[in-house]
Design a protein around this nucleic acid. Structure first.
Lengths: 212, 212
DNA sequence: TGTAAATTCACACAAAAATGTGATGGTCGG
DNA sequence: CCGACCATCACATTTTTGTGTGAATTTACA
């Protein structure tokens, strides 16, 4: 599998960049650029028959934008991996691309060596992206300050225990983890339920943590 | 800023690894390991005063787990960056760490050179992680509500019932709602747990309906 | 300094959930 | 027609959770 040729397709409207990338790929062992497309429409009609391993996709292409093209192509050929290759660095574009089915997200300033490494990674199921972009993605997950807990007047301990509950721990396990008795855990849970006006773990979790 | 010393703290219970990491960091130009802690409690009490730039955190430490330690420390010292350094590679641990405030997520098998690079990246606001882990994170975006269920081979009915569970309903209520007996509900739940390899409602919910 | 809130614990009982071991039909594809 | 799933149901047992009642310490702060 490592020795296999990775068949790449490029979708990019700027001719110089397109040809440059194709050149880099074709001159590198283990990679082959089997086609290039200058716009979204030709890409959508031409790529499915080629069944490439990896598609490098510019976002800002004429016709329909790269994100939509990925969305379409990914549904037609789920085994093919898509990597965005773009100058955009804003959250919106990143998230939309990932949602649409892109696995990797690289900036155009990426070095040829890193590009090839990334193509290999994406082909093997990874999601190459530089750490700045990863940071945007990670931030998206970040828990906002617990206005939730505050709103319900949960104490530190109560919140801490509820948080462990929400991760799937049982009372006994929480007691051990916090070095307190199970009865104490119960006691906190009881007070928490009173404050939240609920009568089970799942309800409590949904009230404090679950945000759809 | 590049020339500044990056002050690092290590939280890791295994002495050999802890000392090894400290050594690597201290012998590298631009890095200084200013302290190490063997468990969560000492870390939570000792780290805030030190105001380190970066904290390397093992997940599986005694006392309280690394994820909670990060959650606490991040709230006390938001400017400090946290990087998980662990052997765990499962979704649960990754998401929980990121949610708690970790920026980077590296596996313990990471090379010293890459580790130092990652420390620098995390210090500069990035989120270093290898592309396999990034892939897990990226996958989150693509998960439509029921692709999860499919992945675990849950049947329609099993998924339907689990969904009601996740909304806080009890077995009896679900039975009434679906006009089947409570024993049938139990039966589906039992099969679901078997497929998901869990033993409680909360665990099952977390596996199938993870929302951060 | 007094008091309210937070944290800790104990014991008992009831309700709900988890687990073990069945069994009966229905459907669908080889 | 058979084996494989699927959905349905029953009954018993154990474990976990929820609730009632009470109380001892520590901490925060007015």
């Amino acid at each position: 599998m490592n020795e296999q040729l990775i068949r790449v397709v490029i979708v990019e409207d700027q001719e110089d960049i397109r040809e440059g990338l194709a050149m880099i790929i074709n001159f590198s062992e283990g990679f082959q650029c089997i086609a290039t497309f200058p716009d979204g429409n030709s890409a959508m009609s031409g790529i499915p028959d080629l069944k490439p391993d990896v598609v490098l996709m510019d976002i800002d292409i004429p016709g329909s934008d790269g994100i939509q093209v990925i969305f379409f192509l990914k549904s037609v050929m789920p085994a093919t991996q898509f990597m965005m290759l773009t100058v955009f660095e804003d959250d919106e574009k990143i998230f939309q691309s990932l949602k649409a089915g892109a696995s990797g997200y690289l900036l155009k300033k990426t070095s040829p060596a890193r590009l090839l490494e990334a193509i290999r990674e994406v082909h093997e199921g990874g999601s190459p992206m530089n750490s700045q972009i990863a940071s945007r993605v990670v931030n998206y997950f970040r828990q906002k300050p617990d206005s939730q807990a505050e709103a319900y007047n949960l104490t530190r301990r109560e919140y801490e225990i509820l948080e462990l509950i929400s991760r799937g721990y049982r009372y006994k396990e929480i007691g051990d983890k916090l070095s307190i008795s199970m009865d104490t855990v119960r006691s906190h849970i009881r007070n928490t339920y009173e404050k939240l006006q609920v009568t089970s773990k799942v309800e409590a979790i949904n009230k404090v943590f679950r945000r759809l």
